[in-house]
Amino acid sequence: MESLNPISSNSFGADVHLSTKDVHVWFGQRHVLEGVNLEFPVNSVTALIGPSGCGKSTFIRTLNRMHELIPNAKLAGEVLLKGQNIYAVGVDPIQVRINIGMVFQKPNPFPTMTIRGNVLSGLRLSGKHSRNEDELVENSLQAASLWNEVKDRLDSPAGSLSGGQQQRLCIARALALAPDVLLMDEPCSALDPGSTIRIEETIRSISKNMTVVIVTHNMQQAQRVSEQTAFFLAEDNNPGYVVEAGLTNDIFHNPKDKRTEDYVSGRFG
């Protein structure tokens, strides 16, 4: 089969885990995203970059069906998780969101729950059960590199943590559901540089056995954490689209498109 995109099983040498085919998005009558074809290989990190309003945050929300919660939002095209369209009739969006976790821009742990309660919140919310909750809490917090800082105060309220710790708690909370894919929408934009580095280390470590898609405004961050990068652009009220996608190294050092080159070298955006 011919590859739709530079990020493919061929160019990267890994199986495609998640892919999109001709994804379009509308808010009411407004066409905001046009014909996005991307492929996310297994256990890799893909960065979505581009200026504000280019549709990258909108796009990441189509990957776990969070997009459809926005009133008047419409979508065309296919999002395939291991070959199966997550928008197909009969697919439960709740199951999709359990398989494809999400971390948001602003750390948003549940303020009424303890640290432990936050890690287990996905189980409670989705009605799933775990045979060993203590082990799940420890493993999830370990994976999010937070365990050593909170192991003695698991029953403290989540609000007692610092911003960076809260964001790692949100990562732990998503990991507790053992998702296949983790989506991160500008996870460090509300954090200080020190916390950002910790989160980036966490992303590197979880991507050893998980596919990660991260939206970022920070081009250094994209280069530090990702193997692939897709550059989104929206021009003059036209819908956003992918200008260029490929290995991160190529996008930043050997871009094929002039607009990509201008953006990554800081000439606009």
């Binding site: 969070m66 359990i98 948003n108 549940f110 919140s121 409670r124 799933k128 909370r173 998503a174 559901l177």
Partner: peptide
């Protein structure tokens, strides 16, 4: 609203989101 989004993204239903969050 971010808390509601977080709950739904964790596989919450409308009802469990209301009840738990």
């Amino acid at each position: 609203k971010d808390l509601v989004s977080a709950a739904l993204a964790l596989g919450g239903t409308r009802f469990s989101t209301m009840r738990r969050v």
